[in-house]
Amino acid sequence: MSSSQFNRDNEYYDGETLTLVDDNGRSLPCYIEHSIEVDGITYLLLMPTDIPIVIMSWEREDDENEEVEATMLEDDSEIAEIFGNAKAVLAEQNLYLYHTAYTLTAIGELPPLEEDEILTLNIDDEDSQLEPEELQLLASFYHSERKYCIYTPLTPLLFFARYDLENRLELVSPEQENLLPILQELLFDESE
C-alpha cells in the first residue's frame, strides 16, 4: 500500500468523500465512514463510492474429480489482458467497469441477489482466522480458453488510512505499528 498524492487541503477532499490515488496514478473515490484522532494523527475508515469488483479465473484441477481452482486476478498485466472482455460483459448488464486504484470498480445498478449466484470463499491460511467471504456473481466469460467470473463482495470493502505528519493520506495495515486497537474502534463506531 502506498501514499495518496492528495492531502486534506487539496480540492479533492470535501469532508464527506476523498480520493485515494495509487502509485500508477489511478484514483478511487471513497466515502469517509468514520474518523478518529489519536496522538494528533487522523485515522480514517474508507469505503469506495462505487461497486467493488473482483475477477477470478477458474482452472480445472482434474477432469475426474471435477474440482476447480480459483485464482483472484490482482496483477495489472493479467487484468489489462482481459479488461476489455470484462468491461463488455458487464456493459450488457448496464454496469460500467473501471480500473481504479486498489480495486476494480463498477458504476450502475446491481442485479437482484440470487442464492445460487453466491460464491463463498474460504481462505486457506492456517495462521489466519478470517471469516469466509461471500461474493455475488455478476457475469462470466472465456478468454484464451480460460473461464473468468466477475463478482462483487457482499460485505463492504473498507480501507484503513491515516494522514501522516506531512498531511498526506496513506493506507495502513492494522498490523503496522500495532494499529489494530484503532481499527477496532473505527469498526465499532461503524456498527453503531
Rank of each mutant, 00 (worst) to 15 (best):
P156H: 08
P181F: 04
A106S: 02
F6N: 01
Y163L: 10
L104D: 01
Y43N: 03
S140W: 03
K147V: 12
Q129P: 12
D76I: 11
D116W: 06
P156N: 02
P111E: 04
L97D: 05
F188I: 14
E177A: 06
D127I: 09
S4A: 03
D75K: 14
I36Q: 11
G25V: 08
V21C: 07
D125R: 08
Q136A: 13
N85I: 10
L73P: 03
L110S: 08
L187M: 11
Q184Y: 09
S140T: 09
L154P: 04
D23C: 12
D22N: 04
E131S: 12
A139H: 12
E145C: 15
I53W: 05
S3K: 14
E61L: 11
F159W: 03
E37D: 10
E67Q: 09
F6P: 05
E131Q: 08
A101V: 02
D62F: 02
E131R: 13
D9C: 14
M1W: 14
N94C: 00
E145N: 11
D9G: 14
T49P: 08
S173M: 06
I123S: 06
D189G: 08
Y151L: 07
A88N: 13
L44Y: 04
Y151T: 00
Y163G: 02
T49F: 07
L138P: 08
D9W: 15
M56L: 05
E133S: 07
G15K: 01
E78T: 01
L18V: 06
A88E: 09
E16I: 15
D39C: 12
L119T: 02
L187W: 06
P111V: 00
L157D: 04
P29L: 03
L157R: 10
S4L: 00
Y12V: 07
G25A: 00
V54Y: 07
L130H: 13
G15L: 03
L113D: 04
Y98Q: 14
E69I: 14
V38A: 09
S128L: 12
S4D: 06
G40T: 08
L97P: 04
L154K: 00
V38Y: 00
S144A: 15
E92H: 11
R146Q: 12
P181T: 00
N7E: 00
H99Q: 15
S77P: 10
T152G: 01
T71A: 11
Y151N: 04
E166S: 05
P111D: 10
Y12P: 11
L138I: 13
Q129E: 14
D125S: 06
N7C: 03
A101C: 08
L186V: 10
L154D: 10
V54D: 05
E92K: 05
I51D: 03
T120H: 01
L171Q: 08
D39W: 06
I51G: 09
N24F: 13
L183F: 11
E33R: 04
D62W: 02
S27E: 12
L90C: 06
H143S: 09
M47Q: 01
